[in-house]
């Protein structure tokens, strides 16, 4: 028999194990608590303000009692426009990466660019949009400047989601389509995209949520004013969104009830985002049901 190991009592290791296990449960509980407190406080602060009038009145510039009707409209309008611009481009780029780019240097470079664009701070995109659309194109602070710049935020996310969803399409399915003599385009449009659609849709909802919450970009492209007409579908008028309104009333400080308006606006945004989150979960479950 070799000499026995000089075994130290293992109490310390065991104690550490127990402490860490309890500690990690505690940490997880703390994260949940942070979220609950956060959402709870925002909703509680906003609750007294949230009556129908708040949602259906025009905002005031100097007096108390303004609403957020046009801001709600502008938020939805801008999200829809920016998605409409970003969707074809993101889909195209995603399809290219998943189905055409192969595995070589081109794919790696494209992916690098997508990652860079995804990581670019929105304030930098705002500067770009301000130079190119607001100033050079002469669109000034308007819905169209905002929508196009906001699309830059959406493109990398949609591209990535499209690529991932397409790569998840079973290869046998596509080979079956080729086997029937379908062209590559037909296979992608008729077989792969429908299969990947739920995944892409989930990504779209997530993207919409991000665009809905975005503020830095829109302050410098869509502006901090809103049209006095409602609803105003013109692309050339400024379009302050909910998130921009929330920021602007708190930093501007001319409204006597800025605090209430900000709290109410924040609560409305949280409610919308919770609803989007439920939608994502629903879609996710649909995907899982199918792949099971």
């Amino acid at each position: 028999m070799p000499a026995p190991l000089p075994f130290r009592p293992r109490r310390f290791a065991r104690l550490t194990d127990q402490v860490m296990r309890v500690g990690l449960w505690g940490l997880a509980a703390a994260f949940i608590a942070v979220l609950l407190v956060f959402v709870g406080v925002i909703l509680k602060q906003g609750w007294p303000v949230l009556h129908l009038g708040f949602l259906t009145r025009m905002p005031e510039t100097l007096d108390a009692g303004g609403g957020i009707k046009p801001e709600i409209f502008n938020s939805l309008y801008l999200v829809a426009l920016s998605l409409a611009i970003a969707l074809p481009i993101g889909l195209g780029a995603g399809i290219y990466m998943a189905e055409y780019a192969g595995q070589g240097r081109a794919l790696r470079f494209l992916r690098l660019c997508i990652e860079t664009l995804a990581a670019t701070p929105s304030i930098v995109l705002a500067l770009f949009g301000m130079i190119v659309f607001v100033q050079m194109m002469g669109w000034s602070f308007s819905i169209r400047s905002g929508a196009v710049t906001l699309a830059l935020l959406n493109i990398p996310v949609i591209t990535r989601v499209t690529e991932v969803s397409l790569l998840g399409v079973p290869r046998e399915l596509m080979e079956a389509s080729y086997g029937l003599g379908a062209t590559k385009l037909q296979t992608i449009l008729k077989v792969a995209l429908p299969y990947a659609a739920t995944g892409i849709l989930t990504g779209l909802v997530l993207t919409a949520g991000r665009a809905f919450g975005e503020s830095a970009i829109l302050v410098f492209t869509a502006g901090t004013n809103t049209s006095q007409v409602f609803p105003d579908f013109r692309l050339t008028v400024p379009g302050e969104t909910l998130s921009v309104h929330l920021w602007y009333v708190t930093s501007d400080g001319t409204l006597p009830d800025a605090r209430e308006i900000a709290a109410g606006t924040a609560a409305v945004m949280i409610v919308v985002l919770l609803a989007l989150n439920l939608l994502v979960r629903f879609l996710d479950r649909a995907i899982r049901r199918r792949t099971r």
Binding site: P2, P6, R10
Partner: peptide
């Protein structure tokens, strides 16, 4: 061996070799 508190280098070297 390290898990069980062996820290001394020569002891460790010996254990590893054997």
């Amino acid at each position: 061996p390290r898990l069980f508190g062996v820290k001394d280098r020569t002891t460790l070297d010996g254990l590893v070799e054997s």
